[in-house]
Design a protein around this nucleic acid. Structure first.
Length: 838
DNA sequence: AAGGCGATGTTTTTT
DNA sequence: ACATCGCCTT
């Protein structure tokens, strides 16, 4: 399945008999509270469902879809259900499926704004001067393209970087502004050349038969506006519209929805203005605030009963958010009566904060007086900015606490994955210039600046693709030295892959012999990804070919392996001994594994362009670390919110750039953070933090002042640190503070010379005595297999030498990362790492 | 052509 | 601190 199964969307396949559905009872309604039920039953006309955090929004939304189907208001293919993420779309699909049994077969219009737009755009591409097989560029492609335009326009790329232009154009597209519609007031943008470059960029995209993400929406909008007949068709088709996370819509998405809804007005938008946290990428809270004006006669239904958090947590969240102006206003309440107050604690610095949270996580895992044992999966650390994650990663690594980072660099955005993808793109379409450009000299094929320029010139002169130009130059013998042979075999290889790939596309039943015939010796070809147990591999893959995986799947997966092997790309990372290399090989391996779900390379490439998520399910229990943004929609029994310091959170930059609006969005972020917690929410801040290598001190976040004191428990700072006498020192300074954060953090104590001296002493010999005593015990049972001077390899820190052993913990002097204390099971011997790439 | 070295700019993130 | 990038050297 490619995820672009368009046929059922347009051929009105109705897998469901209206009468059969209507006859079915509606058990899902019994399960709802009055507000949810009202939201589900108000099927006709515009509805705004204001759903606070944890109020059963998805439940109401899915029940509503079920209700539309059951009451025969709509057939599955007449409902347009839009979400922002693929994950949300998937979840909705699943839950509707669960409500209705298997009846949801055909809900072709459930998806993200972008995936639905692709579907429409492929159908009507010619109306905006595209072919229906247009390619979707990702951010990296866009930037490279713009860079070329900037250089060509003779603009100093230093002062006017491509990223800036990309941001500008993106902003315009979010606001549904085509180059012609950009207001004059913004003509000065980008050195007065902004609109000009925007226009050129769109031209280039058209010649490349490509679109970027913004175009997906914008082109559809253009089509709808310029072709009323097409619009009318979709309006007739999509009789009921549901929108999730409406507070995150931008102008283009709003217009898109309004056009589709204006005929029948059956639009139900679900959202929470207090959770609007994407203003910086074009979302307009105004959309949700204006809903009743935009859709006259709209019913507004508030979901306020919260099923997630304790009253203290809700009160803390509502105390913070009430400082915002211009809210639609909701009051969350819960039937739950008891629960722990929100905890607040101050620390000396960021490292201590990480240390304390690490210990706290371990304590919760074991269970405490107040809390019974908690799984690591039930705990999350939510940070404002991703660089804050490091302190936690470092700390958790050294104490051996399993963690998972959610978000971070997206799988498909990683260098090696993108390179591999470029190779696949070339195999499917050798004329893909952006892909060609990306990998023609990766691995090094002796092509430098000069060689590349010649290819460009030849291409321009003969109006050829880069691939054809390079081919012409090989025939003419215009490449010098190393390049001559390397480029020729590169081109030949692309030809072979392309032949396999196209034959695969023509006949799904192509057999394995195809590959063998075209590429002699391919049996041994893909050594890079052969598992070590090669002896078994033959029978294993035979078995696979016969059982779960259809025979046709085997080929393109094999082809992909072959491509990475023949191109020498896999070899780059096998030979690379930097710490990242094994991880990169691992990623390439999972890329190949991901291929198995698709019918062919092309299907995979299309899928990847839109679906950029990679939530791998993990059997191991782990504590989650993520940004507040990534946490939206999630919930955890225990949540840690570190780094509540002015400047960090609320972020200085946000306030500088967007003033009060920025501050309010930060406050909503705080609200989102607190409301992720079910049972226990712990907020913390540090007096000192290393920012860009510089020590900086900060004041506790202003949001801390907004926490209602009655619902907050102020914890005593650790003091365990440094062997116990810290606690005594601090206790002396405690006891008279008036504000909440003064109680949490007696800055004068921490700043006193005595405290600093103590810190220094502690840092020199951290807990020397107790550790050695403990190791004697550990040594007897858990014996490390490493000895001093062993060369070891660590997934994150790379290669290093063992310089100390304490039971299950090693002191390792890493070649790149310095000396670290590491739990032995997190390293392997270097020899082992050399033999086995992953 | 390719590797090494200093200047540079660092939120949040989806599609 | 740190990674990325462009320039400079070999």
């Amino acid at each position: 399945m490619t995820g672009f199964d368009e046929s059922d969307a347009f051929e009105a396949a109705v897998p469901l008999s209206r009468r059969a559905m209507a006859a079915r009872p509606a058990p899902y309604l019994d399960d709802l509270n009055p507000a949810q039920r009202a939201a589900v039953e108000a099927l006709d006309g515009p509805v705004l469902m204001l759903a606070g955090a944890g109020t059963g929004k998805t439940k109401a939304l899915t029940a509503r879809i079920a209700h539309l189907l059951t009451t025969a208001r709509a057939r599955p293919n007449e409902i347009l259900a839009v979400t922002f993420t693929n994950k949300a779309a998937r979840e909705m699909k699943e839950r509707v499926g669960r409500l209705l049994g298997e009846a949801v077969e055909g809900m072709p219009w459930m998806g993200t704004f972008h995936s639905i737009s692709v579907k429409i755009l492929r159908r009507h591409a010619e109306l905006v001067g595209l072919k229906s097989n247009f390619t979707i560029l990702d951010t990296d492609d866009q930037i490279r393209l713009m860079k070329q335009l900037i250089v060509a326009a003779n603009i100093d790329e230093k002062r006017w970087p491509a990223r800036m232009l990309a941001g500008l154009i993106d902003g315009w597209k979010n606001r549904a502004l085509t180059p012609q519609k950009v207001p004059n007031s913004e003509a000065a943008a980008f050195n007065h050349r902004g609109t000009e470059l925007y226009e050129q960029y769109q031209e280039r995209l058209k010649t490349l038969n490509a679109v970027d993400f913004g175009d997906l929406l914008l082109h559809v909008l253009t089509i709808f506006q310029a072709h009323p007949d097409v619009l009318a068709q979709y309006q007739r088709w999509l009789r009921y519209i549901l929108v999730d996370e409406y507070q995150d819509t931008n102008v283009a998405q709003y217009l898109w929805l309004r056009l589709l809804a204006q005929a029948h007005h059956n639009i139900c938008c679900v959202g929470d203005d207090d959770q609007s946290i994407y203003g910086w990428r074009g979302a307009e809270v105004g959309n949700i605030l204006r809903f009743e004006k935009d859709f006259p006669g709209a019913k507004v239904i508030r979901l306020e009963q919260n099923y997630r958090s304790t009253p203290h947590i809700l009160a803390a969240a509502s105390g913070v958010i009430s400082a915002n102006a211009g809210r639609l206003g909701k009051t969350l309440w819960t039937e739950v009566e008891d629960g722990h107050k929100v905890r607040l604690i101050g620390h000396w610095d960021g490292e201590e904060e990480a240390r304390w949270i690490g210990e706290e996580v371990e304590r919760l895992q074991k269970g405490t007086r107040d809390f019974k044992r908690m799984s690591l999966n039930d705990m999350a650390i939510l940070v404002r900015a991703s660089h804050q994650m490091r302190a936690f990663e470092d700390r958790f690594l050294t104490i051996g606490l399993p963690y998972r980072v959610i978000g971070g660099p997206r799988f498909y955005e990683r260098l090696e994955v993108r390179d591999a993808m470029a190779y696949f793109r070339l195999a499917v379409n050798p004329d893909d210039n952006l892909a060609f450009e990306r990998v023609v000299n990766t691995p090094k094929r002796g092509l430098g600046e000069k060689g590349m320029q010649e290819i460009y010139q030849t291409a321009r002169a003969g109006r050829l693709s880069l691939f054809d130009a390079a081919r012409l130059m090989t025939v003419r013998g215009e490449f010098k030295g190393k390049a001559a042979n390397a480029v020729r075999s590169f081109l030949d290889a692309i030809d072979r892959w392309n032949e396999v790939a196209s034959s695969r596309r023509r006949s799904a039943a192509a057999d394995v012999t195809d590959v063998r015939r075209i590429v002699p010796g391919s049996d041994e070809a893909f050594t890079a990804f052969e598992p070590e147990e090669t002896v078994d591999a033959g029978s294993a893959s035979d078995e696979q070919a016969l059982s779960d995986a259809p025979a046709s799947d085997y080929d393109h997966v094999r082809l992909a392996e072959l491509i990475l092997d023949e191109s020498g790309y896999a070899a780059i990372w096998q030979q690379d001994k930097t710490p990242e290399a094994p991880g990169r090989l691992e990623n390439l391996k999972s890329l190949i594994e991901g291929l198995e779900e698709f019918d062919n390379l092309q299907g995979f490439l299309e899928h990847v362009a839109l679906i950029m998520d990679n939530d791998s399910v993990d059997a191991v229990e782990k504590v989650s670390i993520m940004t507040l943004h990534a946490a939206k929609g999630l919930e955890f029994p225990a949540v840690f919110l570190p780094g509540w310091e002015d400047g960090l959170f609320p972020s200085q930059r946000s306030m500088d750039e967007s003033g009060l609006k920025g501050l309010e969005e930060e406050r909503r972020l705080a609200y989102v953070g607190i409301t992720r917690a079910e049972k226990l929410c712990t907020i913390s801040f540090a007096a000192n933090r290393r920012v860009y290598g510089q020590w900086q001190s900060a004041l506790p976040s202003r949001f801390i002042d907004e926490l209602p004191a009655d619902h907050v428990e102020v914890l005593t700072p650790p003091g365990l640190y440094g062997g116990g006498f810290g606690a005594a020192g601090m206790a002396a300074g405690f006891g008279g503070g008036s504000t909440i954060e003064q109680k949490a953090m007696k800055a004068d104590v921490y700043n006193s010379p005595g405290w600093k001296r103590m810190q220094a002493r502690g840092a020199d010999r951290p807990m020397a005595q107790p550790q050695e005593a403990r190791n004697m015990v550990i040594d007897a049972t858990a014996v490390s297999s490493f000895v001093l001077d062993d060369r070891v390899f660590h997934q994150k820190f790379g290669y290093g030498t063992v310089v100390g052993i304490e039971g299950d913990k090693l002191d390792v002097a890493f070649d790149k990362a310095g000396v670290k204390k590491i739990v032995a099971r997190f390293v392997v011997s270097a020899a082992q790492a050399d033999d086995v790439p992953f």
